Simulated assay, not measured.
Amino acid sequence: MARWTGEWLSAPRPGAEEPPRWRGERLGLPEQGVGAVARGGARLLGLVVDLVAASLLTSLFLRPDLQDTAAMQSYNLWAIAVWAVITIIPVSFFGFTPGMFVTGIRVARLDGAQMVGVPRAIVRAALTFLIIPAAIRNADGRSWLDRLTGTVVIRMR
């Protein structure tokens, strides 16, 4: 049994399952190209693009005032709400956020269904908001939120 720190700290044991040669091999995904497991850098860049987009969209309706704490709290709450909308709705129906589209990655269900669905997208957004579940990944490159929702983030190009 692997430790919580992951397979990379566990020494191979005699008779143990051979470690995968690439991320996603156990899931039947290719090593490179379309359909391969997305790297952490693309995922992080996609999140940053989504956060900037949410902030810019919020700025269209609310003026950020760095000198006014109450105004900034309101602005930040609205920016989080906008981020949730631009994350949950597109992932539910299309499998990617605007930031994921820019970086060329998308969310795919492991059971082969076409749409991720609203419940899975809500869980993914909630756990992404907490950061840690999205940052810790296993040997297949799947984060806690991927494992909980039965999904994997793959490359589109």
Rank of each mutant, 00 (worst) to 15 (best):
M1A: 11
T5N: 06
G6K: 12
G6N: 09
G6C: 11
E7G: 08
W8R: 12
L9V: 08
A11G: 09
P12N: 02
R13S: 10
R13L: 12
P14V: 12
G15H: 07
G15E: 07
A16V: 03
P19A: 14
G24E: 10
E25Y: 10
R26H: 14
R26G: 12
L27N: 05
G28C: 15
G28R: 14
L29N: 08
P30A: 12
G33P: 08
G33Y: 12
V34D: 10
V34E: 13
V34L: 13
G35A: 03
G40R: 09
G40S: 13
G41F: 09
A42L: 08
R43Y: 05
R43S: 05
R43H: 08
L45S: 11
L47C: 02
V48H: 08
V49L: 05
V52E: 03
S55G: 15
L56F: 15
L57Y: 13
S59P: 12
S59I: 06
L60F: 08
F61K: 03
L62G: 02
R63F: 01
Q67C: 00
D68Q: 11
A70E: 14
A71C: 10
A71Y: 10
M72L: 06
M72S: 01
W78E: 04
I80T: 09
V85D: 06
I86A: 12
I86M: 12
I88L: 05
I89Q: 04
P90I: 04
V91P: 01
S92A: 08
F93E: 03
F94H: 06
F94P: 00
F94L: 13
G95E: 03
F96W: 05
P98G: 01
V102F: 11
T103M: 07
I105Q: 06
V107E: 02
V107L: 03
A108R: 11
L110F: 12
A113L: 07
Q114I: 03
M115L: 10
M115I: 11
V116F: 04
P119Q: 04
P119V: 00
P119H: 05
A121L: 02
A121R: 01
A121I: 02
R124K: 13
R124Y: 07
R124T: 04
R124E: 08
A125N: 15
A126V: 13
L127M: 14
L127P: 07
I131F: 15
I131H: 14
I132F: 15
P133A: 09
P133L: 09
P133W: 01
A139M: 04
D140P: 09
S143I: 05
L148V: 15
T149N: 03
G150H: 03
V152Q: 01
R155L: 05
M156G: 04
R157S: 12
